[in-house]
Amino acid sequence: MEVRTIKVFTTVDNINLHTQVVDMSMTYGQQFGPTYLDGADVTKIKPHNSHEGKTFYVLPNDDTLRVEAFEYYHTTDPSFLGRYMSALNHTKKWKYPQVNGLTSIKWADNNCYLATALLTLQQIELKFNPPALQDAYYRARAGEAANFCALILAYCNKTVGELGDVRETMSYLFQHANLDSCKRVLNVVCKTCGQQQTTLKGVEAVMYMGTLSYEQFKKGVQIPCTCGKQATKYLVQQESPFVMMSAPPAQYELKHGTFTCASEYTGNYQCGHYKHITSKETLYCIDGALLTKSSEYKGPITDVFYKENSYTTTIK
Rank of each mutant, 00 (worst) to 15 (best):
L133N: 03
T302Q: 00
L291W: 13
K298L: 11
T282H: 12
G228W: 01
N309A: 15
R139K: 11
P97W: 08
P300L: 08
R66G: 09
C227H: 01
T258R: 10
C271T: 08
E168F: 06
V67Y: 07
P300V: 15
C285G: 04
I277H: 04
Q30P: 08
H256K: 13
G53V: 07
T192K: 08
K92L: 10
Y297G: 00
I124M: 06
S181M: 15
A150C: 01
S240Y: 00
D38L: 12
S263Q: 00
K44I: 13
M24V: 14
G194E: 04
F9H: 11
S25E: 09
T302A: 08
V21H: 09
S279A: 11
I6G: 07
P224D: 13
Q270T: 09
G257C: 05
G267P: 05
W94R: 03
N14G: 13
L65Y: 13
V203D: 07
L153Q: 04
Y274V: 00
Q251H: 09
T19W: 11
F242K: 00
K233Y: 07
T282N: 08
L186A: 07
T103H: 06
E253W: 07
P248A: 15
T266P: 00
A132V: 05
T266F: 13
E308W: 06
F9A: 07
T35L: 09
A108Q: 08
V99C: 10
G53P: 05
A87K: 03
L65I: 08
Y234C: 08
T103F: 08
F217R: 01
R167M: 04
E71P: 05
Y57S: 09
K229M: 07
Q30F: 06
T5L: 12
K307C: 09
E68L: 07
P300D: 15
G257R: 06
F259E: 00
K106C: 13
H51C: 08
S295F: 11
L59F: 15
T313Q: 08
V160W: 04
K158E: 02
V221K: 05
R184Y: 01
D41V: 14
D38K: 13
Y84L: 06
S79L: 12
E204P: 08
Y172W: 13
V166P: 01
F174G: 02
K44T: 12
N100S: 10
Y138Q: 10
A150M: 01
L163T: 12
N187S: 13
E253F: 09
A115T: 12
A146R: 06
T11K: 05
F259D: 00
T75I: 11
P60G: 10
G161E: 04
E144Q: 11
L212M: 05
H51A: 08
G299K: 01
K316V: 14
T55M: 14
L173M: 15
Y73W: 05
A69L: 13
Y57R: 06
T159H: 15
K183E: 07
A154E: 03
Y28I: 06
G202S: 06
G53Q: 12
G228P: 01
T192R: 14
C112Q: 05
F9W: 13
V185N: 02
L291C: 08
G101D: 08
S246K: 01
A40M: 12
I6L: 14
W94A: 05
Q238A: 02
T19I: 14
I124E: 02
P47G: 09
N268C: 10
P60F: 06
Y265P: 03
G272H: 00
Y155M: 00
V58E: 05
C193L: 01
Q197R: 14
T75P: 04
Y172L: 12
M209N: 12
L126T: 04
S213H: 01
G288D: 00
D38A: 12
E168S: 09
K54E: 13
G228K: 05
G299A: 06
S240Q: 00
N268P: 08
H48R: 11
Q196K: 13
K46A: 13
T258E: 15
S294P: 12
Y57P: 04
T75W: 04
S310N: 07
G220L: 01
L235D: 01
L235H: 01
L37N: 12
G210T: 03
A40D: 10
C149I: 09
A40F: 11
L118K: 03
M245S: 01
Q20E: 13
L163S: 07
P130W: 02
Y306D: 00
R184Q: 06
N147H: 09
I45R: 13
